[in-house]
Design a binder for these strands. Structure first.
Lengths: 250, 250
DNA sequence: CGTCATATTGACTGGTGTCAACCAGTGTGG
DNA sequence: CCACACTGGTTGACACCAGTCAATATGACG
C-alpha cells in the first residue's frame, strides 16, 4: 500500500470536455469562473488499492473524482474498519478550511482526480459564490446519503444490506451509462468482498454467504468474479427492506 | 402524538439577545442582514414527544433549534426505526430547495425553534452569502458527525455504543454549561431508553441491560431515572472503543 | 508449477434480539 | 382515598443471526 506514483494519464485538460463538467463542484460556474479554476487545477491518477491520503495526514488539496471510485474509511484502534463514504465520478473529496484528512481516502478502482490546491480554492470560493452554492448542494446530498446509510447500518439484516448495496450500485451505474437493455441490468461490482463488508458493517464471510444465497435463489446472476446481472430489479428491491415506491433513480 | 398546539412561549424576539446567536445559521450575519432575517422569523414551541413534521409531509419552513432537543428519524415499512439526526440548540433543520421533509422530526424534550418560511429564506440566501457560507460550514460538520455515527452503528458493540452515547451527551452538555465541578460530570439524559435505542441501532432491552452493566461496574452513577454522574470521564472513554487521544471537547 | 490475493464454504460460538414478566412512578376517576 | 390504567424501565429465558476460526477453492501472475 504505497502512496507514491501518480503518473499523469492522457486526459483532456479542457474543462469543457470534462465528463463531470455538469455534475461536479464546478457545475454552476460560468466560462470566466471556469478559467480561474482551470488555472489552479491538476490531475492525479491512482491505481486500484492505492491510498490517496491517510486519516490525520496533511491534505493540502481538495478534489473531484473524474473517473473511478474512491472510498472514505475510519479505523478503530483495534483495526475494525468502517467505510463512511463512497465517491463516484463528480463527487467531491476534502474539506475547505481543514488542514488534515479526517478519513483514509483509498482508490477502490483505478482513479483519476481533478485536484485544486486548498488555499487558492478557498480564496476562489469567497470570490465566486457559484462554487460555494454548488458545494452546499452536494454536501446536503451527501448528508442525505449518509443518513440512508445509517438506516442500513443500524437496522437492516445482512441479506437486506447486500440487496441494498447491489441496488445502489446498479442505480448509479444505470444513471451514468444508459444501458437499459430491456429490464435486465448488467454491471461490474467495483468493490471487493472486503470493501463491501466495510461498507455494510459486516464480515467478509457474511457478505460472501449472502451473495451466494441471492445467487442460488436467482435474484442475481454472477458472470465471472465481478460481473453481476439482475434479471428482475423489482424483485431484488423487495429484498432491501425499503419502501417499494421510494425508488427514484438517483 | 398530535401535531397541533404550538403556543408562543415568552421568549426574547431580539436576535441580539438570542442564546444561539453566535453558533446558529445566522452566526456570520452583520447587523443589517440580521434585520432582514428578523423580519421573516417566527418562533414555534413543542412539548416533549410532539412531532414537528412527518417524513414525506410538506415542510414550508427551515429552522434553528433555540432550546431543547429535536430528533430526525427514518422508519422502514415494517416499523423498524433509526434515528439519523440529533439536533441541539443552534442546529439547523430542513433543507433549502426541498418541498417535503425527508425525515420524521420530533421534539425529544420541550423545544423552541426559530423558523423561517422557506421561500423568503431561500431568496435571502442568494442575496446574503454569509448565510450560505455558515450553512455550508454547519452541513459539513453534520456530515462529519454522521460519519462518526456510521462507525458506531457499523462496528461498535452494544457496550461501546452506550458508552459512546453517554460521552457524547456529556461533552455537549459540558460545552454549553461550564459546570466543571472537579473531574465529576453530572447531567440529565435527555433521551428515553427507546430514543437511545433508536439512536444506537439497538433494542431498548439491550440499552437497559448495558446501562445497568455500566452502573454495576461503577463507570456511571444514576440518580433518579434520568440524572447521570460520571465519576471518571477517562475511564468511561476507554469503553467507547475510540482513540484515547482524539477526544476534543466539541 | 508455486505463490499470492480473493473468494467460498463449513462448524461452532456468542452477542443481541425476542418474548414475557415484573417494577416504579404518575395520573385518573369512582 | 384507593383501585386502576398507563408509561417508561428492568430483568430473565431462550433463540437465532452474524461473527470467528479454519479449510478449501479459484484465478492471476510470475
Amino acid at each position: 500500500m504505497t502512496r507514491v506514483s501518480q503518473k499523469i494519464q492522457p486526459f483532456s485538460q479542457e474543462c469543457n470536455d470534462c465528463p463531470i463538467r455538469h455534475r461536479a463542484v464546478c457545475a454552476r460556474c460560468e466560462a470566466d469562473e471556469l478559467t480561474l479554476l482551470e488555472q489552479i487545477k491538476y490531475y492525479r491518477s491512482f491505481e486500484a488499492g492505492q491510498t490517496v491520503v491517510w486519516a490525520g495526514d496533511k491534505m493540502d488539496f481538495v478534489a473531484s473524482v473524474v473517473t473511478g471510485i474512491a472510498t472514505l474509511s475510519q479505523t478503530m484502534e483495534d483495526g475494525r474498519r468502517q467505510m463512511v463514504g463512497l465517491l463516484l465520478p463528480s463527487d467531491f473529496a476534502g474539506r475547505p478550511g481543514r488542514e488534515t484528512s479526517a478519513y483514509d481516502v483509498t482508490a477502490a478502482t483505478d482513479l483519476v482526480m481533478c485536484c485544486f490546491r486548498k488555499k487558492p480554492f478557498e480564496e476562489l470560493m469567497i470570490r465566486t459564490p457559484h462554487i460555494g452554492q454548488r458545494l452546499l448542494e452536494m454536501t446536503l446530498d451527501e448528508l442525505d446519503a449518509a443518513r440512508e446509510w445509517m438506516l442500513l447500518l443500524g437496522r437492516k439484516t445482512a441479506r437486506e444490506k447486500i440487496a441494498s448495496l447491489i441496488c445502489i450500485i446498479a442505480r448509479r451505474d444505470a444513471s451514468l451509462q444508459l444501458n437499459a437493455s430491456d429490464g435486465e441490468l448488467r454491471f461490474d461490482l467495483p468493490l471487493t468482498r472486503e470493501a463491501m463488508s466495510e461498507y455494510l458493517g459486516l464480515t467478509l464471510e457474511t457478505v460472501s454467504r449472502q451473495v451466494s444465497a441471492l445467487r442460488k435463489e436467482g435474484l442475481i446472476v454472477t458472470e465471472g468474479k465481478r460481473q453481476i446481472v439482475i434479471p428482475d430489479f423489482d424483485l431484488l428491491l423487495e429484498e432491501t427492506g425499503d419502501d417499494s415506491d421510494g425508488g427514484f433513480l438517483i
